[in-house]
C-alpha cells in the first residue's frame, strides 16, 4: 500500500557486540586449522604413530606374540657388536653412494640426449620410462634370471665374445662381491628413468633463446652445457637427487626378490636385515632398532639436500618478466 512507505520506521536496533563464537566463525586461522585436520589426522595415524611405536619398540625386547619389557639401549649395544648389522650398514651406504652416482650421471646424460629433436621423440621418451613402470618385484625377478648362474645372458654374451671359455660360468648372485655388484646394477637400471625424466622436464624450462645467445657468444656444445644448462638445472637436481638417495637408502623390494640378503648376508641392506630379524626372526625389538638406526642417516641426507635446495641467489628477487 502506498501509505506504507510513509510510515515512521522504528529506530534501528544497535548492532550487538559480536560474541566469541561470531568472531571465531569468521576467523580465517580457525577455519584453516579445520581444513588441515584431515591431513594432520592421516599423518599422525599412519606416520607419526608408527614411527614413534617403532622407536619405542626398539627400546624393548618385544617378540612376536609377546609384549616386551623396557630394556633401554640394550638392542643398540648388541647391534654395535653384530657383524651382520655393521656389514649391512656399510653396504647400504656403498649401495646408495655408487647407485646414486651412476643414476645421476646416466640420467643426466639421457635427459640431455632426449632433449634433442629427433624422430619418434615421444615414443622414445615413453620407452625410457619402462623400467620405472614395471613393478619392482617383476623387474627383480627378471634380473634374477639375468644373473642366474646357468642361464645368465651376461655369461652367454661373455662366452660369445670369447672373454669366457665355453661352459665357464659366473656365479653372479652366489659370490658376495658379484652379488653386491649385481643388485647395484639392477637398482641403477631401475632408478635411471625417474631421474632422466625429471631432469628432462627441468631442461625443457630452459628458454631456447639462452642457447641462441650462448651460440652467438661463441660457446661450444660442452660449454653450453657447463655454463648454461647445468647451473640452471641445479635446483631440480637437488630435489631429484634427494628423493633418489632416500629411495635407494630404504630399498627393500629389489634385494628381497633377488637375493634375500644373501649370499652370507653380503647384500643385506638395513631395511632387509630389519625385516629378517624383526618379522621372520620374530625379534621385533631388534628389528625396530635396526630400522630406527636408519633415521640418522636419512636425516643427514635430508639436511644436506635442505642446504642444497635453498633458493640460490639468482633465483631471488622480483620476477617481473
Amino acid at each position: 500500500m502506498a501509505t506504507d512507505s510513509l510510515a515512521v520506521k522504528p529506530a534501528r536496533a544497535p548492532i550487538p557486540e559480536p560474541s566469541a563464537w561470531d568472531r571465531l566463525r569468521v576467523n580465517r586461522n580457525w577455519l584453516g586449522a579445520w581444513f588441515m585436520m584431515p591431513a594432520m589426522a592421516f599423518l599422525v595415524l599412519f606416520l607419526a604413530y608408527p614411527l614413534g611405536l617403532g622407536m619405542w619398540m626398539s627400546l624393548t625386547d618385544m617378540r612376536i606374540g609377546r609384549g616386551g619389557s623396557f630394556i633401554g639401549f640394550e638392542n643398540y649395544v648388541y647391534l654395535l657388536d653384530d657383524r651382520d648389522f655393521l656389514r649391512a650398514t656399510g653396504f647400504t651406504l656403498v649401495y646408495t653412494f655408487i647407485a646414486s652416482i651412476f643414476k645421476f650421471s646416466i640420467g643426466l646424460y639421457l635427459a640431455v640426449l632426449l632433449n634433442n629433436n629427433m624422430p619418434f621423440k615421444a615414443l622414445i621418451r615413453a620407452v625410457v620410462l619402462i623400467p620405472f613402470i614395471v613393478p619392482t618385484v617383476l623387474s627383480a625377478v627378471a634380473f634374477w634370471w639375468i644373473f642366474d648362474t646357468q642361464f645368465s645372458i651376461f655369461t652367454w654374451l661373455l662366452q660369445k665374445w670369447g672373454i669366457l671359455e665355453k661352459n665357464q660360468l659366473i656365479n653372479w648372485l652366489g659370490d658376495p662381491l658379484l652379488a653386491q655388484g649385481s643388485v647395484i646394477f639392477a637398482n641403477i637400471w631401475r632408478g635411471i628413468p625417474f631421474i632422466a625424466i625429471t631432469l628432462l622436464a627441468g631442461l625443457q624450462t630452459v628458454s631456447p633463446s639462452l642457447y641462441e645467445a650462448a651460440t652467438l657468444d661463441g660457446a661450444s656444445k660442452w660449454q653450453m652445457f657447463r655454463f648454461v644448462t647445468y647451473p640452471l638445472l641445479t635446483p631440480i637436481i637437488a630435489v631429484v637427487m634427494t628423493f633418489s638417495v632416500l629411495f635407494t637408502f630404504t630399498d627393500f623390494q629389489l634385494i628381497w626378490a633377488m637375493t634375500r640378503g644373501g649370499p652370507v648376508n653380503a647384500t643385506h641392506l638395513m631395511a632387509t636385515l630389519s625385516y629378517q630379524r624383526g618379522i621372520l626372526g620374530g625379534r621385533l625389538g631388534e628389528g625396530a632398532a635396526i630400522a630406527t638406526a636408519m633415521v640418522p642417516f636419512l636425516l643427514a641426507a635430508i639436511m644436506i639436500s635442505w642446504f642444497g635446495l635453498q633458493r640460490r641467489k639468482w633465483q631471488q628477487g622480483e620476477n617481473n618478466d
Binding site: S207, S209, L210, E212, A213, A214, T215, L216, D217, G218, A219, F227, V228, P231, L232, R312, W314, Q315, D321
Partner: peptide, 29 residues
Amino acid sequence: PPKERDIAMVFQNYALYPHMTVADNMAFS
C-alpha cells in the same frame, strides 16, 4: 658458424643468463 661472424644480437626477451650477475653476463663471450 655464428660465433665467427663477429656479430652481436639483442633478443626480444633479452636472453640474459639468469644465474649470472650483470657483469658475468656481459663478460661471458
